[in-house]
Amino acid sequence: MKINVETTVTAPIAEVWHAYTTPADIMQWNAASDDWHTTAASVDLREGGEFSSRMEARDGSFGFDFAGTYTKIVPHQLIEYAFGDRTAQVAFTDSPEGVNVSVTFDAETTHSVEQQRDGWQAILNNFKRHVEAEV
């Protein structure tokens, strides 16, 4: 099953792309709630390149690495990647309202579809706030 989340960011496409693909920016926006944060991020933005984000609870009680391999990159338009046995696609579409960022990913079986959608949407909402605060 595929799950989709999206937002429209009021900023130029180059800035939206940069914030989505730069480790220093990723560490600022990549969390679903205020009690989590990303403590490290790496990006090798090319097909076959790897990425990783270390996500941790702020109280130190839990953490995990979200990592994978880029399978397709079309600058300022598309990022596709595999993580474990799952895949995701991030599409960037310029519009008069801003840049629509649409993330479609394979669901997993541990959490409900609603929990997964809500978590990924919360991260995408943080991304939007981060980029728009920088403009």
Rank of each mutant, 00 (worst) to 15 (best):
Q77L: 02
L124E: 03
E50K: 06
S112A: 06
K128G: 07
K2Q: 13
K128D: 00
Q77V: 02
D85Q: 13
Q89I: 14
D25T: 07
E80Y: 00
T104F: 00
E6F: 13
E56V: 03
R58L: 03
D106S: 11
D25W: 00
A14I: 08
A88V: 06
D65G: 01
D44I: 03
A67N: 11
A91P: 04
T69A: 04
A88E: 07
A82D: 14
S33L: 02
T104P: 05
Q116K: 06
R129C: 11
V131E: 09
A11W: 15
R54M: 03
T22R: 09
W36K: 01
S102L: 11
E132S: 09
Q28C: 12
I73H: 07
W17F: 12
L124I: 14
P96K: 03
V9C: 11
P75F: 03
T69E: 14
W120H: 12
H76N: 14
R86L: 11
F127H: 12
D35M: 06
D94V: 06
Q115S: 13
D44M: 02
T10L: 10
D85G: 12
N125S: 14
T7L: 08
Q115Y: 10
Y20C: 14
G119M: 05
Y81G: 05
A19E: 09
T109S: 12
I3S: 08
T109F: 04
D65F: 09
T7F: 06
A14R: 14
L124M: 12
V131K: 09
A67F: 04
E134Q: 15
S95P: 00
Y20D: 14
W120D: 00
P75E: 12
T87V: 04
E134D: 08
A122H: 10
V16D: 09
F105I: 10
D118I: 00
L78P: 01
A32H: 13
D44H: 06
A133H: 13
W17M: 13
D85P: 01
D65Q: 10
D59A: 04
E134L: 13
I13S: 10
F62H: 08
E15W: 00
A91L: 05
G68K: 03
L78S: 05
W17D: 10
N126G: 13
H130D: 10
A107S: 08
A40K: 15
A91Q: 08
F83C: 01
I73F: 05
H18C: 03
F62W: 10
A31R: 08
A133Q: 14
R46M: 03
N30A: 11
T10N: 15
A57Y: 04
S52R: 08
D34E: 13
Y70D: 06
P75L: 02
D25I: 03
A40C: 05
W120R: 01
A133K: 13
K128N: 07
S33E: 13
W120C: 08
P75H: 04
W120T: 09
G63T: 05
V5H: 13
Y70Q: 02
E6I: 08
V101L: 02
E47L: 03
A31Y: 15
F83V: 09
E132F: 07
H18F: 09
M1Y: 10
T38F: 01
P12W: 04
Y81I: 02
R129H: 15
E56H: 01
Q121A: 10
N126C: 11
F66E: 12
T110R: 00
T110N: 03
E108Q: 14
F92L: 04
G98V: 01
V131D: 07
L124T: 15
